[in-house]
Write a protein that binds this DNA or RNA. Sequence first.
DNA 1: ACAAAAGTGTTGAGAGTACACCCATGC
DNA 2: GCATGGGTGTACTCTCAACACTTTTGT
Lengths: 229, 229
Amino acid sequence: MAYTYEYPRPSVTVDLAIFTIREGKLHVLLIRRGGQPFKGKWALPGGFVLEGEDLETAALRELQEETGVRDLYLEQLYTFGEPQRDPRGRVITVAYFALISSDRQELSAQTDAAGVEWHAMDALPPLAFDHEKILEYALDRLRNKLEYTTVGFQLLPKKFTLSELQGIYEAILGRGLDKRNFRRKIALLDILEETDEKKMEGVHRPARLYRFKARKFEKLKDKGILFPF
Amino acid sequence: MAYTYEYPRPSVTVDLAIFTIREGKLHVLLIRRGGQPFKGKWALPGGFVLEGEDLETAALRELQEETGVRDLYLEQLYTFGEPQRDPRGRVITVAYFALISSDRQELSAQTDAAGVEWHAMDALPPLAFDHEKILEYALDRLRNKLEYTTVGFQLLPKKFTLSELQGIYEAILGRGLDKRNFRRKIALLDILEETDEKKMEGVHRPARLYRFKARKFEKLKDKGILFPF
DNA sequence: ACAAAAGTGTTGAGAGTACACCCATGC
DNA sequence: GCATGGGTGTACTCTCAACACTTTTGT
């Protein structure tokens, strides 16, 4: 089967920067390329947008294929279209970024076998194509959104401790935060509810578990920015 | 000449939301469609991305063609790729938004003749395709950026009065601002320099002209958000 | 009893908001 | 001299940032 057009057309792909927190550090999902070009190099997961397929649907499909995870935070990032970004020809890629909660980051067995791995953001290997640029852009966006929205909560399980929440912020912002100020700010936002449960784990005083009140994601209005710490 | 591919490919276009201020109100540039579909309806200017042409270059080219203006603020907005957004077939559009300073908004004669006009944002006609959605998105982005960057300055001539600057903010935010508070905030940012000139025009006390210190555009760091008025 | 993380308040500084009058110019 | 927009300061409130000790649990 062949497709013929009067004018040349680019290929369109989606690429994903999928983040999670592991061991208190921000990680991104990378796949090792099996074919040319950049054979053996690490790259962001992604693939072609199918005929009649919405961009976001394509992104969700790729995400599913790589991680088996549904129902997570996904947002369009930026579209990269430099003519020379792919040596094989004109490929325009719509980049997305996604956040996976730390309790659902196990990769499905098949993808795991195929060279799909979490990499710490502070120790990345060299990447294929312009994927370093895409990742840089994604990290920027993540840090920005962290400050005036509640995206950060997407990285946590349904129930979590305040220290875990603070850990997310510290991991992404790359610096420590004051515990008392952090808790006061969170309390002021009025977006958490206490549960009766406590996290009994380890040898220390158990921490109370909280739940996120709002639906999925929220822009923090009113006072404008809310995490300028 | 024909182009043949093994898999189907979408067309890729760029569309532009070009804003300016006229008579104290935010306006956007629209063109009246000459052909089907949506013949006679108003639409955002835009067109196909050429082979080997960068996305931003394509946007700048369209901008030039419609307005004759070079050297202005241009930023990628979002990519719209719903399969049904164009009745003629699969067309993915990368939307950009642009700001033109109020002293350079005259349209070139040719485009003027061809049904290219400024429209006040508070009195828009019905638009073709999903262009209403794109514009809504653009306005949102513009308002947001206004609050923590200096994009607003892109809408003014090199030298401007403080009242003109305040007018920009009021036009975009759609509400009045306190003159003294506005001026204090601007002064605090330390991004303007006084000139020796005054605007002698009209029948009133002449206003001092200021110049924007920084290069083109700046993110306001440090204190986080800077225009929560 | 001790190790380790959980949890909790106060103070000083800076920014936000509300508010009203005099100034310089052209006619 | 008057109409019109230009230009200026103060007081109150609220949020931010810095800072250290007690509590609860397991071993």
